[in-house]
Structures are given as structure tokens and as C-alpha cells.
Amino acid sequence: MFQFIFDALIRSVDLALIAVALSAVYSLIKFPNVALVQYAVVGAFVAMSLHTAGLPLLLAGLLSAFFVGLLAVVFNILVFERLLKVDSAIALIGSLALSMILSAVFLLTYGPTAYRFKLEVTPAMRVLGARITDHQITTLIVTAISLGLFALILFRTSLGREMRATATNGVLAAATGIDTRRVTNVVVFLSGMLAALGGITLAMRGSVSIDLGTNMLLPVFAAAILGGLGNALGAVVGAIVIAAAETVVTNTNVGPLVGEDLYFLPASYAPVASFAILVIFLLFRPRGLFVSEVSRV
């Protein structure tokens, strides 16, 4: 039972950082930026390269996150601001195109094989009957700290106030003298950093390959939409719900239903759970579980 909770928690952490990044930036740029998952992969690859070059993991991670944050701002200014002037659907397609280009860059620089961080791999410890590896613990800590800092910025600083104001009503915020463009780019930067950290922690516990981003796309979206797009911390709850659903789907023994002692649904059905939840929410409660900042869906 504890293993189940822990598995769901770890899986939600896979998604949480990037889902929060997506949600936070959505309220300001008003379109779902699909390229964000590729930013996470950039973060993982860059951190891995820096780490292999000799930098300690923490420093490599931070530098990589910083770099990705900047990259996100650059793309926002060069590409998305222009596309948003036309239509948000066009911006969505543009972000898809950008994802493809990023995938191509990864393919050319790193090749199609999966890479692993050069870290110690130790067997899991047993805590309360569940298995936990130290990388998973590190991930939990990193996620908690990043999200904590982000929440701190959002709710306790004047910058955070400006961010929330611009998210709620951009025109009014501009009228009160807030430089909405600057605030938007700050949020884009922060979300880029979060995405990069999400990618790095994911890579630490598994491997990083060019498929990492595309495989994560829909679960991350599902988590963000569930929590209510624009409600950054709601995305965390969304991630937990999605992760729990996926874990239930693959860990429940449906043997008795099919007449065998032990039978599980193939694990690759796990994403189906999250996509199905996404579709159901879009159909019946597109605003998400909580009140979202987004008035239209």
C-alpha cells in the first residue's frame, strides 16, 4: 500500500515541475506551449553534458536551468510573441514546430540512444515496505524546494503580485503601470527553469533521450489542465491525480476478472489513463478541479 502511494508520488513528481511551469506561463501567454516539454529535455541534456565535463551535479543542474530559462525567453520574444498576435491556435502550431526543431537538434548532437547521468546506481532502500532509491529522495527534495521557492515568489514578492495581476487582467495591470511584457518574460524565464529542473530530475532517475519530451507531453498537459490552467499550484494536485490514475491502472491485479491468478493491464496503457482523464475533464469540467485564472477554455 505504501509502495503504491510512493509510486504515485514519484510519478507525480515526474510531471509536477513541468506541469507547474506550463500552468504558470499559460495565464500570461494565453496558449498551451507544447515546446515546454522539450525545454525540459534541453535542461536534462545540458546538465548531463556539464556533469560529464566535470562540474558537480548541483552546479551543472543550476547552470542548465538558468540556460534553459534564458532560452525560453529568447524563443518567446523571437517566435511566440509574433505568433500570438495572429491567433493562439497558430502559436500552438508554432510551438509544435519548435518542438520538432529542438528534437532534430538533439538527434544531431546526441544521437538517438538513451543517455544516463554518470551517477552511482544503488539498489533501493526499504522504507515501510516500499522501495525507495536515493535519487528518488533527491528528486522529492529538489521538487519541494523549487515549488516552495516559486510559491514564495508568487505570493510574497511584489514581482509575484505583478505576475498575478497580469495573469488575471493584463489590460488593467498595464493600466496600473506594470510592464506586462517584462513580467511575462520573467514568468517565461522561471517556467523555463522549472521545466529544466523537471527534466533533470527525471533524467537522474532514468535516462534522457530525444523521446523523453514527446512521451511526457500529454500527461503534463493533463495534469496542468486538471489543476486549472493558470493555477500554478493546482497543477501539483493535477499531477498527483494523474499519477495516481496511472499507477492504479498498472498495479491493480485484474486477474480475477479474466480468470487468471495474476494479470495486469500492460503498463503501456498507463498514458491512456491520463489521456482519458484529460478528455473527460475537457468535456465536462474544462476549468479544472480548482478555480482557474483562465476564463475561457
Binding site: G206, D211, L212, T250, E260, L262, P266, A267
Partner: peptide, 18 residues
């Protein structure tokens, strides 16, 4: 039990747990 996995995934933890 027989567990069939789809190739090309980035993790097989779920299948292993099964």
C-alpha cells in the same frame, strides 16, 4: 505470469513491478 512490454519506452519499472 507473462508480462508483455512495448518496446521504446523510457522506463520499465511498471512492468518489472508486475
Amino acid at each position: 505470469t507473462t508480462v508483455m512490454y512495448t518496446i521504446g519506452q523510457s522506463t520499465y519499472r511498471r512492468e518489472l513491478q508486475q
